[in-house]
Design a protein around this nucleic acid. Sequence first.
DNA 1: ACCACATGCTTACGGTGTAAGCATCAATTG
DNA 2: CAATTGATGCTTACACCGTAAGCATGTGGT
Lengths: 230, 230
Amino acid sequence: MPDRRNGAKAGLSRERVLDAALEYLDTYGLPALSMRKLGAHLGVEAMSLYRHVPNKAALLDGLVDRVMEIAFADLEEPLAGRAGSWVPWMRQFAHALRAALLAHPGVLPLAATRPVNSPQALRMSERRLAAMRAAGLALGRAMDVVTVLATFTIGHTLAEVGRTPGHDDSEPDVDQPAGDLDPAEFPNLTEVIATRAGLDFDSRFGQAVDILLDGYAALPDGSAIRGPHA
Amino acid sequence: MPDRRNGAKAGLSRERVLDAALEYLDTYGLPALSMRKLGAHLGVEAMSLYRHVPNKAALLDGLVDRVMEIAFADLEEPLAGRAGSWVPWMRQFAHALRAALLAHPGVLPLAATRPVNSPQALRMSERRLAAMRAAGLALGRAMDVVTVLATFTIGHTLAEVGRTPGHDDSEPDVDQPAGDLDPAEFPNLTEVIATRAGLDFDSRFGQAVDILLDGYAALPDGSAIRGPHA
DNA sequence: ACCACATGCTTACGGTGTAAGCATCAATTG
DNA sequence: CAATTGATGCTTACACCGTAAGCATGTGGT
């Protein structure tokens, strides 16, 4: 029997609403997500949702929070103490974040736009900072590294997903041009498309993350273990 | 006399509409921008706008395009030929992009979400790639550098602007917590707020950009001039 | 003078988020 | 077991949104 406290009628709870919203988002895209449609998806009227969520903005915030939780759920604890141990840990952090965002591209624009401040998110931030300090980084430096990696990951993944799902019309991507471009006017872009050089998001992301991590580790007070990570 | 071709009644043109939209956006924020309000702002009915813009999505795309144009308007031509000359140029590119986005924070979520494919944007991309190659970079590498810098800039600026303007309620930023956090549970976050360590977006951005540029320059085939740029 | 036509306005439709009040049922209390 | 209580979900309503369709108007070209 589901956790129904006092006079509960049927299922429905903040959790079920969020789950359904995330599922709906992944299936139909952000612009299609309306309270009415989400209600219908749950076999319920739109207004019923407001018993479990104060408003749509809070629902969206909740989705971002949920995805962050997914992202960092099995992020193993960093090895405290060993100087420089933050480097592989932050690498894992960035890749886990990207994976979770790619798995739920519908929340990506939300994650990009709405800083989450849930208790859970604060707890994760706190834990990250503590681990970074334990690995020998100054607090400000720790904040910088985390912020730079998080923002780069979000920015790069936004570009990777491209025109966020649920977008219909307009001109197609550079990647797949319908009225494709004049090779005389755009020789380099044409070559990019032909050879697909510089279109590998996976390896580019990994490379950029490594550059950032190595760079911060090599900084005067990075408690560095010098040399390329490879 | 303004460029009015055939039977034109009053002002109003695609350009005027875009200008007004950008101004309205900067003033009132993205959620407040509706066709009706924009029309009113121009002394005109909403439907009149559709004579100059196919739909709202196209209008928003146009705004992103406009801001990109502003961003790179006075980006000086890169010094062709000299190996490594792409580094300072790309630094300028990143800082110019950030400045333009900060000047028009309302378009930031749009820029993050809608890849622009206007002829103008394609021309700028082409020019960038050409310059990077002239400075000795392989095409794929050039794409990588440009993409990484652009996406990082967008991601970092999104975080900087924070909850995108026009957002009303919900919990206040970490930066300025109303029900502020328990120093016992969140010692590090508390210290961040108290000392403002790791909250300097300006210098963090510059530092991260330099790390990326130096990192790419030092890569096996970066046509590098080794050593830190300082 | 006439015409053709781009322009801007009017009206209308289906969609949105959500405020206000009502009906209903489960669990608690006697 | 019967009465009470309170959470739950539904109904109705409102203001707003993007935009499709058709009409009035005034201008420039002939």
